[in-house]
Design a protein around this nucleic acid. Structure first.
Length: 637
RNA sequence: GGCUCGUUGGUCAAGCGGUUAAGACGCCUCCCUUUCACGGAGGAAUGACGGGUUCGAUUCCCGUACGGGCUACCA
């Protein structure tokens, strides 16, 4: 018989006779539906196998973070639900336990590394006001993945009644691109994802540009040096290059400034701190690097990936403060997230491997209790499976950026100076945001079309995938098509007007246009399609597909159309039904099947084999245009 | 190479130990439609591999393979 203990936060402490185990769940989700990892055990006398079919009781999950120590103090509270060990087994040097909770079953195993002291949760208490941030660097266009990150931030913030802040990460002076910041703001505006706080709408936590917060970072960098958690390094770029060359081997193609290497470099670790200060006083350029501890395991609970643990020995000593006095991303995110009271940090998976550095900083700066919950979002890939980049757009012919972007630094000779955006390609912002949301998230119901409001309602981090998704432009177009079909003519009006204007169709009656939009919208996948589908209502077609008529043309048909012209010229009735009636009557008189006449008539009016019902078209374009177009085509045959 | 994350049809994906393995995009066939589209009905196509646990594994565990990411005084 196994006595029970209970989990707090994510821990389940289980007494197994004389053995004591502590479990923590390894994945997102609640305790009874996820797997657990046995993270600490004391073996006394008998193996896991002997507890097969024993019973374990434990407490229900409480969504409250708790350090291991305090957990231990409190574990005497009464259990709330039962867990039954179903079986245990040994795999190599590891153990696997399987147990059932109520009717559900879970499996756990002993991890390879015993991670006893590192099971602190990173979920902040939800009583705190939720604050999230998107922190782009203004170095160019805003691409898909960026917008998706914004979207998830936005949805999460709205859903929890929190704040969404936009922070500009412009710490790299060398990569400054004029206009990029304003462009990002414009993109967010177009998408309808406007931040609550930003450079143009400051809140209580400004400034919102990192370059304007320069001094703040320095004090923390120096504090870390004081504490011995960071150090000054005087290595020149050439020396660093030499170091890389020196340590480079086929097995280790990219050596890092790590725990071994730092002992041989020009830094304050290898001299008296005073001498280092003197060097600095003399004006020697220096950087501050973090001193990663030797052989500690550092881990956190990622909202999408579960437990992530890394040994600090594998992490290099990243630069925190650059020689120009600016912080690197690593220092800046931590300091700013802390100062801006960020509760949840969403970013792309490309950041996962530097998370240990950030974690260490939170810890060493003494802010561990305010650390945000992390969520590393899956990457969006190109058709070839690699992280989506501008390159893919060029190669496969689809946009990557939200809106057109012209790089002011490049000149016209550069082929990639101009990059096309989804907006200019003819996407509706509603569709763009919708399709992005579904790259990595779904609500489980099978629904694919969501309004922003619906997404705010349904969004749930627990349903965010951990695997990357390949971007499929065909599917993206489908979303747009769906949105165009579902939108009212009134909603589409401004965009359609713009498309037509750009193509030189400037004076169209608004009422007529609304009618036309409803008639043709189901044929438009991109907004630009409205030119082909609606343009002929306002302008005679530029070219007529006479080849499709000529084959079956004959004198009889010419006679029919001349008679039709005569009839239409005289009639006062110009409704679609009237026109059709007259058309069929004349066909019958001439002994021609209407079916053979409809296609030529359509081609005369629209130029090709497409468009809505012919008589609807004739009714809208009016008597004059209808007759003129028939005559024009007749002259070509 | 090291570390790390991932792996259900061509693509997006549901599923949380027992299913004929949803649905969507794309593709194909048919119907509707005197054009194109919309709509409707069908179809082909899926759990990387090897072990383990279990009465039973797509689902839990381990390993291998493959893919991604990171490996800058860039973010």
């Amino acid at each position: 018989m196994i006595t029970h203990r209970m989990p707090f936060g994510q821990y389940a402490l289980i007494d197994v006779g004389v053995q004591q185990y502590i479990f923590t769940n390894t994945k997102k989700g609640s305790l009874h539906t996820r797997s657990f990892q046995l993270i600490e055990h004391k073996r006394r006398g008998f193996g896991v196998r002997s507890i097969i079919k024993s019973e374990v009781h434990f407490m229900a999950l409480q969504h409250r973070p708790l350090p291991l120590q305090s957990f231990r103090k409190q574990h005497a509270q009464p259990p709330r639900c039962m867990m039954q060990v179903k079986h245990g087994c040994k795999i190599g040097r590891e153990y696997s336990l399987q147990f059932a909770v109520r009717s559900l079953q879970c499996t756990s195993s002993l991890p390879r590394k015993l991670l006893s002291a590192h099971c602190k949760l990173s979920l902040p208490p939800m009583s705190q006001r939720v604050r999230v941030r998107f922190a782009p660097s203004p170095t160019g266009g805003l691409h898909l993945g960026g917008v998706r990150t914004v979207l998830y931030n936005y949805l999460f913030a709205r859903q929890h009644g929190g704040d969404f802040v936009l922070r500009i990460e412009d710490t790299d002076q060398t990569r400054f691109v004029p206009g990029a910041e304003a462009y990002i703001l414009d993109c967010l505006k177009w998408c309808g994802l406007e931040p609550d706080e930003s450079v143009v709408k400051p809140g209580a936590y400004g400034p919102y540009r990192q370059s304007e917060r320069k001094e703040m970072y320095q004090q923390y960098a120096h504090r870390l040096v004081e504490q011995g958690d960071a150090y000054y390094a005087f290595d020149t770029p050439a020396e660093l290059e030499a170091m890389r060359e020196q340590y480079k081997t086929p097995e280790n193609p990219s050596p890092t400034y790590n725990q071994q290497v730092r002992q041989h470099m020009h830094n304050s670790l290898n001299m008296e701190l005073e001498s280092a200060r003197e060097l600095i006083a003399e004006g020697t350029p220096y950087v501050v690097r973090i001193k990663m501890p030797v052989d500690e395991v550092i881990g956190f609970t990622d909202m999408v990936r579960g437990e992530v643990n890394v040994n600090t020995s594998q992490v290099d000593d990243k630069v925190l403060l650059k020689a120009d006095g600016m912080p690197t991303y690593h220092l800046a995110v931590v300091v700013d997230d802390y100062l801006m009271k960020i509760t949840h940090a969403f970013r792309g998976e490309e950041w996962l491997s530097s998370a240990p550095v950030h974690l260490m900083l939170w810890k060493k700066l003494g802010w561990e209790n305010s650390m945000p919950a992390w969520a590393h979002l899956p990457l969006i890939m190109g058709p070839d499976g690699a992280k989506l980049s501008k390159r893919h757009g060029n190669k496969y012919g689809f946009p990557i950026f939200a809106m057109n972007w012209t790089d002011p630094v490049k000149n016209d000779a550069d082929s990639d100076r101009h990059t096309e955006g989804f907006r200019e390609r003819g996407f509706l912002p509603e569709a763009f945001v919708n399709l992005l949301a579904l790259m990595g998230w779904n609500d489980g119901s099978g629904q694919e079309i969501f309004t922003l409001e619906e997404m705010v309602q349904r969004f749930n981090m627990e349903r965010v995938h951990s695997a990357g998704a390949q971007f499929d432009f065909e599917k993206a177009k489908w979303y747009n098509h769906e949105w165009i079909k579902r939108s009212t003519a009134q909603r589409l009006l401004p965009e359609v007007q713009q498309v037509l204007t750009q193509r030189g169709i400037t004076d169209c009656n608004e009422q007529v246009l609304l009618q036309v939009i409803d008639l043709v919208k189901e044929r438009c996948t991109l907004l630009s399609d409205f030119y082909e589908q609606a343009g002929f209502f306002f302008q005679a077609p530029a070219s007529i597909d006479t080849d499709s008529i000529k084959g079956k043309w004959n004198e009889q048909k010419t006679l029919f159309f001349t008679e039709l012209i005569r009839n239409y010229e005289l009639t006062q009735l110009w409704q679609a039904a009237d026109l059709e009636h007259a058309f069929k009557e004349i066909a019958a008189v001439n002994g021609v099947k209407p079916g053979e006449l409809m296609l030529p008539f359509r081609i005369m009016l629209v130029g090709g084999k497409f468009g809505p019902a012919v008589f609807d078209i004739a009714a809208i374009i009016g008597k004059e245009a209808t007759i003129a177009r028939i005559k024009h085509t007749l002259s070509l045959l």
